[in-house]
Computed example of a mutant assay.
Amino acid sequence: MGGTLSQARREQPEEIAPSWCPTWPVEWQRALHLVRRHLDEGGALSLAAGEVVRRGEVLGRWARARRLGFDKPASVRQRMCEHVPGITPATEEEKPKARVSQAEKRGMHHRTAGAR
């Protein structure tokens, strides 16, 4: 059958990375693998951009994005991240502030001007 992999071929990626899933973005899986290797080698996971780079991947940026996405509906990938040290839900202080639309800004200005 065209497009299907033999059992042996499906098992090959699992030998390299047990969490490999063919439907997930390769970039996501590559970053997770690099973070795990970095931690296994005794490295610390810094969330500062550009501080830890492995094979061209900025690990802190990837980990920070995972932390900021913890409040989204749970997925298998999110549950996998729960087992990686340093990838925990972001605190309220770490989360970016909600953007305010132009209409909301005008409304705030009008309310402020009317209160004087």
Rank of each mutant, 00 (worst) to 15 (best):
E15N: 08
W24P: 03
G3Y: 07
A31E: 09
R37K: 06
E94A: 11
V53Y: 07
V76T: 00
T112K: 11
T91C: 02
A49L: 07
R116V: 11
E41D: 14
T88V: 12
V58Q: 13
G3I: 10
D40Y: 05
A63M: 00
L5E: 15
P89K: 08
A44Q: 14
E27A: 10
G2H: 10
G107M: 06
C21R: 06
R64H: 12
I87P: 02
E51A: 12
R111T: 15
H38L: 07
G86A: 05
L39A: 02
V84D: 01
G114R: 12
Q12E: 14
P85R: 06
Q78C: 00
K95I: 03
A115K: 09
A31K: 03
G69W: 10
P13V: 00
G56F: 00
G86S: 04
G2W: 05
E11N: 13
I16A: 12
R67T: 15
L34G: 05
E93G: 13
V26F: 14
R54V: 15
R106C: 06
L45A: 02
A49M: 10
A8H: 01
S101P: 00
G3N: 13
A8N: 02
V53W: 06
D40F: 07
K72Y: 04
V53L: 11
V26S: 12
L39V: 03
R36F: 00
Q78I: 00
G107N: 11
L47D: 14
S101D: 03
L34D: 05
R30K: 12
E41R: 08
M80Y: 04
L5R: 15
R36V: 02
G42D: 00
T88H: 00
F70L: 05
A17G: 01
A115H: 09
L68E: 09
E92T: 13
L34A: 08
A103N: 09
C81V: 04
V35C: 07
E15F: 07
T91S: 14
R64L: 15
E94G: 08
A65M: 11
M108C: 05
R79G: 01
Q29G: 11
V84Q: 01
C21S: 07
D40G: 03
V52Y: 03
A8Q: 05
R37G: 05
P25R: 07
H109C: 11
R10L: 14
A115E: 10
K97P: 03
C81L: 04
E27L: 07
V84I: 14
R37I: 02
G60L: 04
K95R: 12
R106Y: 09
G114K: 12
G42N: 01
R67D: 12
G3F: 06
W28I: 04
P73S: 04
R36P: 01
A48N: 07
K105P: 02
H83E: 08
E57P: 00
E94P: 05
E82N: 09
S6M: 07
G50A: 09
Q78R: 02
G60H: 04
R116G: 08
R116N: 04
M1P: 08
C21Q: 08
G50L: 04
G114P: 04
D71F: 06
A65N: 13
E94L: 11
C21L: 08
Q7R: 07
A115F: 08
E92I: 12
P89H: 06
G60K: 03
E57W: 00
E92Y: 04
M1D: 09
P96F: 13
E11I: 10
